[in-house]
Write a protein that binds this DNA or RNA. Structure first.
Length: 582
RNA sequence: GCUCCGGUGGUGUAGCCAGGCCAAGCAUAGGGGCCUUUCGAGCCCCAGACCCGGGUUCAAAUCCCGGCCGGAGCACCA
């Protein structure tokens, strides 16, 4: 037994010594105990043995340690995996035969980066557990919901789930079921009536201001003691239109002195006199969030419901509703929200910027709506990777545009074609060329299978003309040798304010400054728009190489020495590009 | 005010619930290098952190107590 401990200690001591030069007893004890938790009972013995072993190891010369390591087959410590730690197992997963998760957005606006977490978390878990995943529209406030948002959510969510399947290797298939909550209104009315009959809900006709005050002070109002008959009568009055909006609402009877404010007789149904995007004027009474979400989750078999953590105080309310209705309970899990540094994420911030004409619309590339990110050239794959790395954690996270760019670059770099785009072009004349020049460039430097492209630069009387960018132009000095990438080496003869005179050099050298260029003949006019903040952008005009005329809207490219960009469209001859990031 | 969460490198975070494979992981920004008739990309390397004080324990980023600082929620909205 002791021999076994000694051996284990030796392995870890050697490993520790290899890693840090000298072994320390503390970590070695830790590792021994991690391997053999049963030894915790005999901690004193273990300590002593480890102490001895570590001393022995440290007294040996390095070569000897190497030799022992080889003999024992001890390898250098490798990095350990951490993926599983970010996505911990679902609580009580074993209690359920089949895991069912859902994402439940309200169709009240265009989805943003914030929605990606709400979608990814339940989606990843459903797939991981081989369970079921639902998309449920929480459309119980017709005043703010619009039909176009249902479609926008479907569309954007689909591109995210598809990207997740590709990138994370999840089983394909978007959501297994789509549920529109408002289709279930009659059913929900039934549950409301059940609560009234049980004496667990009452119709309150106090003005909103008074209700608020009473809840804050823990005071009951007279309606609370109405009889079941009275409440049923009033409830039907609500449904039939005998009350106007704000004149009556149905409240759950719980405890007006409950320490959790949201638990003090919360409202569960209210009147909204506004046509519903799907049902028009058919209904005028709608459940509020707590009622709708808990009953629908329970009814549709959801086992693990995720929501962002500002709903935490509502857990009590929802559990109370389910309990009073005798409906099945399920796991409720909170996660932290995502914000993007320096960018407005909420509709109430974005909307005024659009009406003021500062933003071009909900797909403005400067804002983190999914439409905007897409237009900027941020791929759904990048968002999935980012969100997966962030995990389902409960802390609020602020994402920087830099981080989004880093993930996007990682995804895009090995895939997208390269083009040369010269911003703020300066005309350069190359003298002494032996004839027409031709550059044969790869579409992608590391992927020859993507093919090559010929760029021709015709010469007349020994002179060829190209554009180079202003930023390169101003850094050049007469006499300097540079290379026009893929084309030729040249020596700078003179630098004029609006031009450049170069001399052709026949030999190829790559240990000089290499710059990009575009031929004057056949150059494609282009403009690159760089988002700089939610309120501003920078626009740079220039010329691209001839092949850029074939680019179509939506194409993603890397503009050499300029950055990644997405083709936004075309204004006549001019290609309009949006620079995603560097 | 009440209730609930948090404080980990310059920045954003993982780890904490179940103390020991943590002399603390990842990303970003920074520094250095490599690649080259192709890059501002990529690849490699470096540097850098557990809010403070006390306690429990063989062992604390992790548990407990106190302090300081920050955030969120408190609708007939979701």
């Amino acid at each position: 037994m002791d021999e076994e401990i000694r051996r284990l200690a030796l392995v870890h001591a050697i490993r520790n010594a290899l890693k840090y030069g000298k072994a320390r007893p503390g970590p070695v004890i830790g590792k021994v105990l991690a391997d053999r938790p049963d030894l915790k009972q005999r901690i004193a013995e273990v300590r002593e043995i480890v102490q001895q072993v570590v001393e022995e190891v440290n007294s040996k010369p390095e070569g000897e340690i190497q030799r022992i390591a080889e003999e024992l087959g001890v390898l250098r410590e490798e990095k350990r995996g951490k993926e599983e730690r970010k996505w911990p197992p679902l609580p009580n997963a074993e209690k359920y035969e089949r895991i069912v998760t859902r994402v439940a957005p309200e169709p009240n606006g265009y989805p943003t980066l914030g929605h990606v977490k709400g979608l990814m978390v339940p989606f990843v878990y459903a797939r991981r557990y081989g369970g079921e995943f639902h998309l449920r529209f929480e459309d119980t406030n017709p005043r703010v919901e619009r039909l176009e948002f249902y479609d926008a959510i479907r569309e954007e969510f689909l591109s995210i789930t598809e990207a997740a399947e590709r990138v994370l290797g999840l089983a394909p298939g978007r959501w297994d079921r789509e549920i529109v909550e408002s289709d279930h209104l009659p059913e929900l009315y039934g549950y409301a009536e059940q609560l009234i009959r049980q004496g667990d809900a009452y119709v309150c006709t106090c003005p909103a201001r008074e209700v608020r005050l009473n809840r804050a002070r823990g005071r009951e109002c007279p309606h609370r003691s109405q009889s079941v008959e009275e409440n049923l009568e009033l409830w039907h009055g609500m449904l039939e239109g005998r009350f106007g909006e704000g004149e009556a609402h149905l409240r759950l009877k719980t405890d007006m002195r409950h320490p959790n404010l949201t638990m003090r007789d919360p409202g569960i149904f209210r009147i909204i006199e506004h046509p519903h995007p799907i049902h028009g004027d058919r209904y005028r009474v709608y459940p509020n969030y707590d009622f709708a979400v808990s009953v629908m989750d329970s009814l549709t078999g959801v086992t693990h419901a995720f929501r962002s953590k500002e709903f935490e105080p509502h857990v009590d309310v929802q559990r109370a509703i389910l309990e009073k209705l005798g409906l099945r309970q399920y796991e409720m899990i909170q996660f932290g929200r995502i914000t993007v540094e320096g960018l407005p994420l909420s509709k109430r911030h974005i909307r005024p910027l659009i009406s003021a004409g500062i933003l071009w619309g909900w797909d403005d590339p400067r804002i983190p709506t999914l439409k905007g990110l897409k237009r900027r050239g941020i791929t759904p794959e990048a968002l999935v990777l980012l969100m997966y790395d962030m995990g389902p954690s409960k802390v609020d996270a602020t994402v920087t545009m830099d981080a989004i760019a880093a993930y996007n670059r990682k995804w895009l770099d090995p895939r997208v074609p390269r083009y040369m785009f010269v911003a703020d072009p300066i005309k350069a004349e190359i003298e002494g060329v032996p004839g027409d020049l031709v550059a044969e460039v790869r579409v992608h430097p590391d992927r020859p299978e993507m093919g090559t492209r010929r760029i021709e630069v015709p010469a007349s009387d020994g002179v060829a003309r190209v554009y180079v960018s202003w930023s390169d132009h101003r850094s050049l000095e007469p006499g300097q040798e540079i290379r026009l990438r893929g084309l030729a080496n040249v020596r700078v003869r003179s630098v004029m304010p609006d031009g450049l005179a170069l001399t052709y050099l026949p030999e190829v050298r790559t240990d000089v400054k290499i710059i990009h260029w575009a031929p004057v003949e056949g150059a494609v006019p282009a403009v690159a728009i760089s988002p700089t903040s939610a309120y501003s952008f920078e626009s740079m005009g220039g010329f691209g190489e001839p092949a850029m005329s074939e680019l179509r809207e939506g194409d993603l490219v890397q503009l050499i020495r300029f950055g990644f960009a997405r083709v936004d469209g075309r204004d006549g001859e001019t290609v309009r590009l949006i620079r995603s990031h560097g």
